[in-house]
Nucleic acid binder design. Structure first.
Lengths: 117, 117
DNA sequence: AGGGGTGCTCACCAAAAGGTGGGTACTGCA
DNA sequence: TGCAGTACCCACCTTTTGGTGAGCACCCCT
C-alpha cells in the first residue's frame, strides 16, 4: 500500500506521506549515493533491513514514482533500482533536513550505525 | 515515547525520527504560522486530530526540544505552545520538502483538506 | 548430496501507532 | 440543574507497520 494520495493538509503532509516508512529515506539516499543498485547491494548497504521490508518499501517507492525498477530477463534474476527524476528532486528537497539531522546528532550525542560497506 | 535518539544511519534518519508521527509536521507548521497557540487553537487548526493524539504528539515534540510548552497558573487552565529555536530551524529545513510536496499534489491531482479556520 | 548466488512470496505474529469513549478539576452563565 | 469554556488523563481497542521463518525457481560449483 503506497502513499494515500490525499486529502492532504499541505505540501509537507503530502511529502511526508510519500517518504514515511522505516527504510524509505535510507533507500533513497543509498540510491542517490550509488546511482544504480541491485537488490542485494541495497540490502548490504542497509544493515538490519530484512528482505521482506526491503521489497515492500521498494515496491511502494516504485508505485509512488520515486524509484525505477528494471527487470532483466536473466537467470539468476537481475533487478536494478535507480531514482526517478522525481526521486532525485525529492532527495534534493530532503538535503536540508538531513543537514539539520546531522546537527542534531552532534548536539544530542547520538550514535551512528556502524557497518563495513 | 519521543524519538529514539540513535543509533542513526545518517542525518536524515535522525531528522525523520524526530518528525515522524501523523500530526507532528502539521503541528510544527501550525505553530510556525501563528507563533503562539493554545491547545484548543491548535486543535481547531488541525481538523480530525483527537485531543489524545494532539496531547501525545505535543508532548513528544516538547521532549525532543522542538516545542516550548508554557503553563500559566490560572483557572481555567491556560497552556501555550510555541516553537523553540530548534523547532524553527527544523521548519526551515522542512520548507523545501513542503514545496516538493505542493508540486506533487498538483501533479497527482491530490485533494486538499478543506476547513474553515 | 551439499553449498553458493539471484530476487523474491507467503503465512503468521509482535509491536507500534492511532483512535474512542469515558472521565477529571475549575470557572462562568442561563 | 444544565451548558459553555480551559487542558488534559485513563482504559481499552483497532489499525498499521515492521518483522520472522518458512518457502520458491533457476543457475553454478564442490
Amino acid at each position: 500500500m503506497a502513499a494515500r494520495r490525499g486529502p492532504y493538509f499541505c505540501g509537507i503532509d503530502a511529502a511526508m506521506d510519500v517518504v514515511s516508512g522505516k527504510w524509505k529515506s535510507l533507500i533513497l539516499w543509498e540510491l542517490a549515493e550509488h546511482g544504480v543498485r541491485r537488490f542485494a547491494q541495497l540490502r548490504r548497504g542497509l544493515p538490519g533491513v530484512s528482505e521482506k521490508m526491503l521489497v515492500q518499501q521498494l515496491r511502494e517507492l516504485e508505485e509512488d514514482g520515486l524509484v525505477h525498477r528494471e527487470v532483466f530477463p536473466e537467470v539468476p534474476p537481475r533487478v536494478e533500482y535507480a531514482l526517478t527524476e522525481d526521486g532525485v528532486s525529492l532527495n534534493e528537497a530532503l538535503a536540508p533536513l538531513g543537514e539539520w539531522g546531522v546537527e542534531r546528532m552532534r548536539r544530542i550525542g547520538a550514535e551512528k550505525v556502524v557497518y563495513a560497506p
